[in-house]
């Protein structure tokens, strides 16, 4: 129960940080708010027992924060002159309230009668339709170390049982990096070709 309260408090903090990031007129504050939301997320990862994820999230958050800060400081465009109207903020807050109410009813308390399984008892513990018990998650824990030889169960799942998913993940990173290279190319291929044509 204590962890649940902490997670909820951090989630509320993340919501507030995200709202500040959207609504503030100062770009620097917006960037710092996004960073705060990200660090809160890595704290949640730690609390619910996912240190592997927390490490990656934390370091990546630092890099993203540094990059965004560099952009903001380089642009020197620190303020949006147009004032925010109260109506937009009100609508945003109302939307947040509606989402919170929907989530509350979807979770339906912690006794598992809602659409979501109770906290700390994920769907993978039970298998599809909660018929099979124990589910695939318990099987991973029981047989992972013996079948893969990896003491870290996360790696046993990530790089042995579900390695095919990890290949997809790596492909996504590879393609997005290709896209970044294509956009950041300093001289376009056509411009370079034209230059070559003009040179001789």
């Amino acid at each position: 129960m204590g962890i649940e309260l902490l997670v909820v408090a951090l989630l509320v903090f993340m919501l507030i940080a995200a709202l500040v990031a959207v609504e503030t007129s100062d770009l620097l504050s917006a960037v710092i708010s996004i960073g705060a939301a990200g660090f809160a997320l890595s704290a949640i990862d730690l609390l619910v027992g996912a240190p592997d994820l927390a490490i990656t999230q934390l370091v990546f958050e630092v890099i993203a924060l540094v990059l965004l800060l560099c952009v903001v400081l380089t642009r020197r465009d620190t303020s949006v002159t147009q004032p925010r109207d109260a109506l937009r903020t009100g609508v945003a807050l109302l939307a947040c309230g509606v989402v919170l109410v929907i989530v509350f009813f979807a979770v339906g308390g912690t006794d598992g009668r809602g659409a979501l399984p109770p906290f700390g008892d994920p769907v993978l513990n039970h298998g599809p339709g909660a018929v099979v018990s124990p589910g695939v998650s318990a099987e991973y824990l029981a047989r992972g170390a013996r079948e893969t030889g990896a003491a870290n169960a996360v790696m046993a799942v990530l790089l042995d049982y579900r390695a095919y998913d990890t290949l997809g993940e790596a492909t996504i990173i590879f393609v997005s990096i290709l896209g970044a290279y294509a956009i950041l190319r300093r001289v376009g291929r056509r411009a370079a070709a034209r230059k070559e044509e003009a040179a001789p």
Binding site: D52, I55, V59, N152
Partner: peptide
Amino acid sequence: GHLSPGGGFAGGVILAA
């Protein structure tokens, strides 16, 4: 990564840092 929390993704991001 196969012994303690971490792994290739986390290591790669730290290298980038």
